[in-house]
Design a protein around this nucleic acid. Structure first.
Lengths: 200, 200
DNA sequence: CTTGTATGCGAGCAAACACTCGCGTCAGGC
DNA sequence: GCCTGACGCGAGTGTTTGCTCGCATACAAG
């Protein structure tokens, strides 16, 4: 179920925002198990009944929190992407700064990222993450097509898919697992991974 | 909680196996939501009470199903790895056949793989997947150290980590999302990814 | 056969929790 | 200032589900 009715007055618009904030807070601070409607309502400082005036069910709140999170990540990566993609050939330093943006975006809210990726049924994230991936793949494909000299891979779609899948997991797992490796060196290695693949 | 007591008689050992089988069946066929103790017991053809003679709680059954699954995957990959690692330098065709083994292992039980990775809280898989990753990383590190001519990466540990993370996700997502790409061509690309990275 | 133990049963308990409903309160247009 | 609908309340309901417990049955040792 989705949003039940839209808030008309000022007061209720604040209520809706407080519910969403409370949802994010509970998720990030106490985990998915604690994410009960009663608790979210309590943290939001409202009653459980009020919650159901605007949200059809528990999942509706969860969905909004998830959507907002991935939208923020997408926004930051897209910003860096658009900055670099205008001029001419990107070059390895450009790749690096885009990767840097991705890493930074994932570092913004580690607690929430952890809960979203480790405690939630992934099916909840699936749609949004696919959208994010698709968005980046599209940019990649148009870039690689426009500048064939920057890649030796024959199938552009396939190359973009492989790169996104590979890079995504390196970034994600570095953010979540915090292995002992230095951030800058990991970035360097990913740049090599990408460059080596495209120009092999 | 763990295993509550071990089965002494033949009869009860069969019961335990039937419970585990039922657990796997319910998970793969009906998903995690349907994975209730009562239903598992029903599918196993026993009563809920009997189930708790051997398993401390619901999670104990789940854990065993997960462990067995990842152990099987690890076994198949390790087998291919050990076959290839004995002789001398592996070479790109050797890399390819190891990757092939990984893909095949993930293709064995797609339904269960999907439920484990998409519906379960990932924290349940975490330990086992880390163990699997660590195992492969160790093999990689010893190989790369023993044959420095096969890689130009300065930090062997870091290189192994990056490769495992990158390759893992490509394999996993290809198995789960079934994008339109031909299996062999994906394998080829991953070989290029690995080779290009190590020899860049 | 007897007896102690391992195994199995299944109705039912207790807790958690998503969600409702009837009623009181307040905002804001006229 | 009034009046109507939007807003908010919170105790309560219905259901689900993990798990127990007292008892029956099957097994194996002596």
């Amino acid at each position: 179920m989705q949003m039940r009715k839209s808030p008309r007055q000022q007061r209720s618009r604040q209520t809706v925002e407080r519910i969403i904030d409370a949802g994010r807070t509970v998720l990030a601070d106490q985990g998915y198990d604690a994410f009960s409607t009663n608790r979210v309502a309590a943290v939001a400082g409202i009653s459980p009944g009020s919650l159901y005036q605007y949200f059809g069910d528990k999942d509706a709140i969860l969905t909004i929190v998830i959507d907002r999170y991935w939208d923020e990540v997408a926004e930051q990566v897209a910003a860096s992407l658009n900055d670099r993609i205008g001029p001419g050939t990107i070059g390895l330093d450009g790749v690096r700064s885009i990767l840097d943006a991705l890493f930074s975006a994932l570092e913004r809210n580690p607690a929430l990222l952890r809960v979203l990726t480790e405690q939630l049924p992934q099916v909840a994230n699936r749609e949004r993450r696919h959208a994010l991936e698709q968005r980046i793949r599209d940019v990649l494909v148009t870039y690689l097509t426009a500048r064939p000299e920057s890649s030796r891979r024959p199938d552009v779609d396939l190359a973009a898919w492989v790169l996104v899948m590979a890079v995504q997991n390196v970034a994600l797992r570095w953010s979540l697992d915090r292995p002992g490796f230095n951030r800058d060196r990991v970035l360097d290695e990913v740049v090599v991974l990408v460059g080596g693949y495209l120009l092999a």
